[in-house]
Nucleic acid binder design. Structure first.
Length: 289
DNA sequence: AGAAGAACCTGGTAGC
DNA sequence: TGCTACCAGGTTCTTC
């Protein structure tokens, strides 16, 4: 178990879920809005491209593009150019995207570097679980990765009724359903566990078996936990400086995730860990039924 | 159709 | 010290 603890502690800082991506989006927008890409380099054969476009083609397409806006959909960052085209980025598990000075060397595992006047944007991802798509004008709605996503949890579209509708025929464990992005988008392993704990719902409970009251509570807690984390700039990022020695403010506020063998804050029972949908899942066997 | 599990990938660690 | 085996994560693909 010590092995897991050590590994988890090493990697917990590297998981961009909705609050982390939103933090990055805000930081990048203030820095990049209106700026023009002067030079670009794209790693040849980068797995992030998944053969959707060659490195040479992407490089060519990026040069002279002006950043008009940066949006977010679930865990995807969407850079919108003045030309109407888009660059869609998913950071996977270990992806980081940030700016450095033009005279600074790219970090290891850099897949994309876009040079602007005075600074460069770099996208680095050691494990290459991330994704990178170049999307032509008006093509965003046809991108499968985006159009499969469920409602945005912090938007008005994510109503209790829609959430209930999205859960009603799902016989899989609620944790698995929350992770698959169709019922609601943007939740990863950490926030699923936190929202389920706050809602007193066992992660293995079938989604279709949730009561009206449980769905109401879960709907509320999903939104609450995400909002609280965004206010703290997420679990993994502080001031948008990539700093492996520090965690964002919300890491200290986690109540259940990663707390195996610790005491439940509510009932003082021992917190357990098991695997649901192939993911480490932390829960209180007494509070979560 | 939906659920479950494998595959992808790399760096850190244990164990030899 | 150096080697091998293992495992975490999100998403897609394959199988049942």
């Amino acid at each position: 178990m010590l092995i897991f603890q050590t590994r988890w502690q090493n990697w917990k800082k590297l998981m961009p879920e909705l609050p982390e991506v939103e933090t990055i989006r805000c930081a990048l927008l203030s820095k990049l809005k209106g700026k023009v890409i002067i030079k670009a380099s794209v790693k040849n054969g980068s797995r992030l491209l998944r053969d959707t476009v060659s490195a040479a083609t992407l490089k060519k397409k990026l040069i002279k593009q002006r950043i008009k806006d940066i949006k977010r959909r679930g865990k995807y960052l969407i850079l919108e150019f003045s030309s109407g085209d888009f660059l869609v980025v998913h950071l996977g598990m270990t992806g980081v995207i940030y700016t450095i000075d033009n005279d600074q060397a790219s970090p290891t595992h850099t897949h994309l570097r876009a040079e602007f006047k005075g600074f460069s944007l770099v996208l680095s991802d050691p494990r290459t679980f991330g994704r990178l798509f170049y999307v032509k004008k008006d093509g965003l709605n046809n991108l499968p990765a985006l159009n499969k996503l469920g409602p945005e949890p912090l938007e008005k579209e994510f109503t209790r009724q829609i959430f209930r509708e999205n859960l009603k025929n799902r016989k899989a464990p609620i944790k698995a359903v929350l992770l698959d992005q169709k019922a609601v988008s943007g939740l990863g392993n950490i926030y699923c566990d936190e929202a389920l704990f706050r809602s007193a719902i066992h992660p293995l409970k079938k989604a279709c078996d949730l009561s009206v009251h449980e769905i109401k509570k879960l709907h509320q807690e999903v939104r609450a936990v995400l909002k609280e984390s965004i206010a703290c700039q997420g679990c993994t990022i502080r001031d948008y400086q990539w700093d492996q020695g520090k965690s964002g403010g919300f890491a200290k506020k986690l109540r259940i995730y990663g707390k195996e063998d610790k005491t439940c804050l509510t009932c003082h029972s021992k917190i357990l860990r098991s695997t649901v949908a192939g993911r480490s899942t932390f829960y209180c066997p007494n509070c979560q039924k």
